[in-house]
Simulated assay, not measured.
Amino acid sequence: MSNISANDGFPETSLTLVGRLRSTDQALRDEAIRLVALRYWLPLYDFARRTGLNEPTSADSVQEFFQHILTNADGFACYDGKQGKLRTWIITIYRRRLSSNLSRQQTQIRGGGIEHLPLDFVLAETQYLRHASEDTQNPELAFDRAFARQLWQQVLSTLKCSYGYRNRSQVYDVLHPLILTDLKEQTLSSQELATLAGLPSLSDFKVCLHRIRKEAAHEFQRLVQQTVEGDDWQEEVRYLLRLVS
């Protein structure tokens, strides 16, 4: 079973995504499920662990949540974008399903029981433990932070593919850790970084760094706009970027 690709096509808005979740076209629904999973399954697992659930129960609850979406088009029937951000809507539905204990009434589905969603819960637990000391009293903020980081990983995946396609993987490998950091914090000089990136001059290095930062910002904004309806996306971009680092 292959892992969920970070390069699936994305809907233009959250309402488009929700529309696909409601679709009677199985192919459209399957793609929507993959996109929701890609963005939300790791943050949902992190949230479950922080609310006191153990590893197996957290894994089961996430699998059951997506199983519910796969088999029920009604889960998002009331979402019209006016209730707030899609991630808020997602966590609200997830919390309701946790509190209803539906996952305990289901056949155990941990370990790849949903064919459409090959979720790696070893990875999920590793990431949870890496950041377990953060937001210890605020699972909701931890969910937002995990969501922001997941979006950022999608940005980096897109950039990596783009630079690879252009035969500039060496440039990407050196520059992508610098996108959100100050050059003054680096142990290597700008000239040394330029040499590592295979760039002929310091000016080329500065141009390429500016370009990759601009590309990353554009892609992050694009992804965020797909999760917020109306004009709130700019504030959402600022909020989520603060949580990425």
Results as ranks from 00 to 15, higher is better:
residue 33 I to D: 04
residue 15 L to T: 02
residue 166 R to Y: 06
residue 10 F to W: 11
residue 30 D to V: 09
residue 34 R to A: 09
residue 129 L to H: 08
residue 45 Y to L: 05
residue 121 F to G: 12
residue 55 E to W: 11
residue 210 H to S: 07
residue 171 V to S: 08
residue 64 E to V: 08
residue 127 Q to S: 02
residue 49 R to H: 01
residue 80 D to W: 03
residue 43 P to Q: 00
residue 32 A to W: 03
residue 160 K to C: 15
residue 106 Q to M: 10
residue 55 E to S: 07
residue 218 H to Y: 11
residue 3 N to W: 09
residue 170 Q to M: 06
residue 24 T to L: 15
residue 194 A to G: 15
residue 142 A to Q: 01
residue 48 A to G: 07
residue 73 A to Q: 12
residue 99 S to W: 05
residue 124 A to H: 05
residue 115 E to P: 10
residue 125 E to H: 12
residue 164 G to R: 12
residue 150 Q to L: 10
residue 215 E to Q: 13
residue 149 R to H: 02
residue 161 C to A: 14
residue 241 L to V: 07
residue 221 Q to S: 14
residue 230 G to R: 12
residue 53 L to D: 10
residue 150 Q to I: 05
residue 141 L to A: 10
residue 215 E to N: 03
residue 200 P to Y: 06
residue 106 Q to R: 02
residue 41 W to C: 01
residue 60 D to W: 09
residue 29 R to T: 09
residue 187 T to V: 09
residue 36 V to T: 08
residue 93 I to W: 11
residue 27 A to F: 09
residue 57 T to A: 13
residue 225 Q to A: 12
residue 194 A to Q: 08
residue 71 T to P: 04
residue 176 H to V: 00
residue 45 Y to C: 03
residue 232 D to C: 07
residue 168 R to K: 14
residue 151 L to S: 00
residue 241 L to G: 01
residue 70 L to M: 10
residue 102 L to N: 04
residue 4 I to H: 11
residue 130 R to F: 15
residue 139 P to H: 05
residue 75 G to S: 11
residue 21 L to T: 03
residue 51 T to P: 03
residue 24 T to N: 14
residue 157 S to Y: 11
residue 22 R to Y: 11
residue 198 G to R: 03
